[in-house]
């Protein structure tokens, strides 16, 4: 419980820093700072449309944040979430496109399963390479992901492209397959329920199930876990598979919910899962507010660009700064806000 509270505290401090930084940058760059600040902070909450879009944007972030959390909990530095998200979404979208005449109740579960398994499979390669030849997971997952980007883009520009799109994008699949909207006219869709369901599921897996204990022990000291009787190679494989699978799901749920087809530009949903997981200290519940924070910064900047003269790229800078600040654990100790649990 104590760690849960201290994680929440850290998150609050990170938000505080982010807000201060946002204000400073806006004051420097904007010609009407007061108006810009108002739009940035209140824009996402100003009406149902913006609020819904903000939550909708957080859905894939929550799922990829969960994916990163579960791999990192096992000390498997899965840096390939973006690549796993891409390949999972591509295969899922292709399947949905091919199954356009089938009923929705069959297509959606099958497509989600396929995205999950393809994403998970491509992540599990890294754990195999580690187990077999001691190859660093961090390095192999990065290299695989970097090799996957051009591969996926190739399909979206060539064999599986929409010629009318004028950019790298797949054709639309049957519109009936899309998730229902929760808060029209905004984009918020019922994928939210799936993502929250996954959060609860993974909360129970991590805190109450034997698998969660095995993942945690593998992450905290793999050699000890192996010696104690945890089948660490299998656990690492499972953690990587779930992680990549969640990344694939994140992409596919976003496609079912918002876009209706696969787009070739970088959404960064996979990459952003990494800082979200670390900010949440791999706690499945805290992933939700952390993802909402990232989404809020993103949508605030977009609103600021729309109604004031904020540069939308400010979002990335603020998100990165939050993360950079939160990495300096000792900083929190130094200012006495957050103390490690110590005794003796």
């Amino acid at each position: 419980m104590t760690t849960f509270l201290s994680s929440l505290k850290r998150l609050f401090i990170a938000i505080l820093f982010a807000l201060i930084l946002a204000v400073v940058i806006i004051i420097i760059t904007s010609s009407e700072p007061s108006e810009a600040i108002k739009v940035f902070f209140l824009g996402p909450f100003s009406n149902k449309y913006f609020l819904g879009n903000m939550v909708s944007y957080a859905i894939p972030l929550i799922i990829s944040g969960l994916g990163a959390s579960i791999a990192f909990s096992a000390d498997m530095w899965n840096m390939g979430l973006e690549g796993q998200l891409y390949i999972g979404s591509l295969c899922g979208t292709y399947l949905a496109y091919q199954m356009s005449s089938c009923p929705k109740t069959i297509v959606v579960p099958i497509v989600l399963m396929v995205s999950f398994f393809i994403g998970g499979g491509s992540a599990a390669i890294s754990s195999y390479l580690k187990n077999r030849w001691k190859i660093n997971v961090f390095l192999s997952s990065l290299l695989i992901a970097n090799a996957l980007f051009p591969f996926v883009t190739f399909f979206l520009e060539g064999p599986f492209s929409d010629p009318k799109a004028g950019m790298a994008a797949s054709p639309y699949f049957n519109r009936n397959f899309m998730f229902s909207k929760i808060l029209p006219p905004s984009e918020l869709h019922s994928g939210l329920l799936i993502s929250l369901g996954l959060v609860i599921l993974f909360y129970f897996i991590m805190k109450r199930r034997v698998l969660g204990y095995e993942i945690k022990m593998t992450g905290e000291n793999a050699l000890f876990a192996y010696y104690g009787g945890v089948p660490t190679a299998r656990i690492e494989m499972i953690a990587m598979f779930l992680s990549g699978g969640l990344a694939g799901l994140a992409g596919m749920i976003n496609i079912f919910g918002s876009t209706g087809r696969m787009l070739g530009y970088m959404t960064n949903f996979g990459w952003n899962g990494i800082p979200i997981a670390i900010i949440a200290r791999y706690d499945p519940i805290i992933v939700v507010p952390a993802a909402l924070l990232f989404s809020f910064v993103q949508k605030g900047a977009e609103a600021g660009a729309l109604f004031a003269d904020i540069t939308p790229e400010i979002a990335q800078l603020i998100q990165a700064t939050i993360f950079y600040i939160i990495t300096a654990e000792g900083l929190f100790e130094a200012i006495g806000i957050w103390k490690r649990k110590s005794s003796a």
Binding site: T29, W77, F138, I274, P275, I278, T311, P312, E313, I314, Q316, L317, I318, Q319, A320, T321, F323, Y324, T327, A328, E329, G330, L331, E333, A334
Partner: peptide
């Protein structure tokens, strides 16, 4: 950051990568 705040080098490095992308993109656009 690593030396004075006992942060994990690996995570700080990731943060630095993100900062670099955010900062350069923001400055270029701005």
């Amino acid at each position: 950051i690593c030396h004075y705040f006992h942060a994990e080098i690996f995570i700080v490095g990731m943060g630095a990568n993100l900062i670099a992308t955010g900062l350069t993109t923001f400055m270029a656009v701005q």
